[in-house]
C-alpha cells in the first residue's frame, strides 16, 4: 500500500479511539458531583497537590539510556552491512561494543545503576 498506509492507520486509530469515546458519551448517563470529580486515593481526600516535583531516580537512567540508544541507532546500518563487510566489521563492532561496555561498567561501578 505504500506510505499512504501510515495516513490510513493514523486516521483509523484516531477515528476509532475518538469515536469510541464519543459513542460512549452518547450512551452513558452522566452526572456531575463534587465528590465524583475528586482524585481517587482510597476514599480519603488527598493531602496537598499531586503535581509536585519529586525525585524518583529515573533521571540518571534516562541519561544513560540516551547514550546507549544513540549507539543502538548507529548499529542498525552496520548490522545490515556486516555480512558483506566481513571481518573488518566484526573488529570494528568489537571495539565499539567494548567502549560501550566500559561505559556501562563505569556507570555500574559509580553506582548510577542504583535506584535512588
Amino acid at each position: 500500500m505504500g506510505s499512504s498506509a501510515l495516513i490510513l492507520l493514523l486516521i483509523v486509530g484516531i477515528a476509532f479511539s475518538v469515536g469510541g469515546i464519543l459513542i460512549s458519551k452518547w450512551f452513558a448517563k452522566s452526572s456531575a458531583s463534587k465528590v465524583k470529580g475528586e482524585p481517587y486515593e482510597c476514599g480519603i481526600p488527598t493531602t496537598g497537590t499531586s503535581w509536585i516535583q519529586f525525585n524518583v531516580g529515573y533521571y540518571l537512567f534516562a541519561l544513560i539510556f540516551l547514550i546507549f540508544d544513540v549507539e543502538l541507532v548507529f548499529m542498525y546500518p552496520w548490522a545490515v552491512a556486516v555480512k558483506k563487510i566481513g571481518m573488518v566489521g566484526l573488529v570494528e563492532i568489537v571495539i565499539f561494543m567494548f567502549i560501550l561496555f566500559m561505559g556501562l561498567l563505569y556507570a555500574w561501578k559509580k553506582g548510577a545503576l542504583k535506584w535512588m
Partner: peptide, 28 residues
C-alpha cells in the same frame, strides 16, 4: 460503553483525554 467516561475535576482535561488516543494511535 455504557459507563460514564469520567474526567476528574483537578485534572488537565486536554491531556487527560488525549492520552488514550495516543495509546491507540501508536500501537496502530
Amino acid at each position: 460503553v455504557m459507563k460514564e467516561g469520567l474526567t476528574p475535576t483537578g485534572s488537565d482535561k486536554f491531556l487527560f483525554n488525549l492520552a488514550p488516543v495516543i495509546m491507540v494511535v501508536t500501537c496502530m
